[in-house]
Design a protein around this nucleic acid. Structure first.
Lengths: 192, 192
DNA sequence: CGGCACTGTTACCGGCGGTAACAGCCGCCG
DNA sequence: CGGCGGCTGTTACCGCCGGTAACAGTGCCG
């Protein structure tokens, strides 16, 4: 296994992922293997040799954006300041990302194909929820079950609201951030 | 258009939907038209004559469960008592439904096919969010934008938590209801 | 009885994910 | 230098899917 060959292979892989990225940007999660191969200037079997199957390619593609997005959100989650500021910053970071690249976002969150991506890469949603659960547990001292349940709930809340917002565009981003933050901040709370 | 014929047609349609239901229960949203036709003891073109295309069949099938589920949730949403009781009852009703028929639930919420179901039938999620938005507006006097944003967020929250719970089964239903309710009730709130 | 609308069939289409089998190329080793 | 293994790429195919055209039986209605 010559080192140079491994390098070349990795670079090729990156080029293929670039092509896949362009097609997914254009066609969303419905992008076909053949069209991705065509965009890369090659044919299907090459893709399959590199990524195994469609879920493998999608997992590799998802990884790229996932790492970047999770890093952004993670830093927003751990900024100093009041809880309120953290929540607003994190929700805004999320919504800004989906506004910037809606197709990529839909691909990450709503791709059924990414699910069977064997081990290694858990889905974006799940990783985000894990990250958030960790933050909640550290911040509030909540029990693991509570932290996990809240985290998955909150992630779903922002995702669903984001979907709705992308689709209906009922307001500017800052307004939605404010509404979601106020909900989390106790806007619907009852006497405790 | 003889009346008896219309009746017969409607009954046939119901039988086909029964068959589709059985297959969806078994195979989830990946159920194919051919297998549904086979289960009904007929062949594909019959299905297509009755429902137009796959999204039509799925829409008709979704309608059945949607009406029932929305009715349940609507009644839970409008029970008398404290806000806390209403929230707990509604969340519990939702989770009970997805626990009872997980495949049907996944079909309703995660079926990509239901989306292009032209007009008439908006997706289950959206209708539920509309219902909830109405309730929130009536109860709190929130502005329409706030009610809608909160409603979509809350629906997404319960759905995402429900997905996670179905998959990981980290606790009994009542515990998840308690955790989600406490989150909505201000468990993560900051000073206001 | 003749027609006709309806239910059902078979047989097909294009496109999908996925794969087998083969062709050229490049470097490595005797 | 010669030949040979491995890698990259191809063509051509498979089975399955959603969807449709064209045809056959059947029973009602004038």
């Amino acid at each position: 296994m010559p080192l140079a060959a491994v390098r070349a292979r990795e670079q090729r892989r990156a080029e293929l992922l670039d092509a896949a990225d362009r097609i997914v940007q254009r066609d969303g999660p419905a992008a076909s293997m053949a069209s991705i191969a065509a965009e890369a200037g090659i044919t299907k079997p090459v893709l399959y040799r590199h990524f195994g199957d469609k879920s493998g390619l999608y997992a590799a593609l998802a990884d790229r954006h996932t790492e970047r997005l999770l890093a952004d959100l993670s830093s927003a989650l751990t900024t100093r300041g009041s809880r309120r500021e953290r929540v607003e910053r994190t929700v805004d970071a999320y919504l800004a990302a989906i506004e910037r690249e809606p197709q990529v976002y839909r691909f990450l969150v709503h791709s059924d194909e990414a699910a069977p991506a064997q081990s290694s890469v858990r889905s974006f949603t799940r990783r985000l929820a894990d990250l958030l659960a960790q933050g909640i547990a550290a911040e509030t001292g909540a029990a693991p079950l509570r932290a996990a349940a809240w985290a998955h709930g909150i992630v779903g809340m922002v995702q669903a609201a984001g979907d709705w917002w992308l689709d209906a565009r009922p307001c500017r981003r800052a307004e939605l951030v404010a509404e979601l933050s106020s909900l989390l901040g106790g806007g619907y709370a009852w006497e405790r």
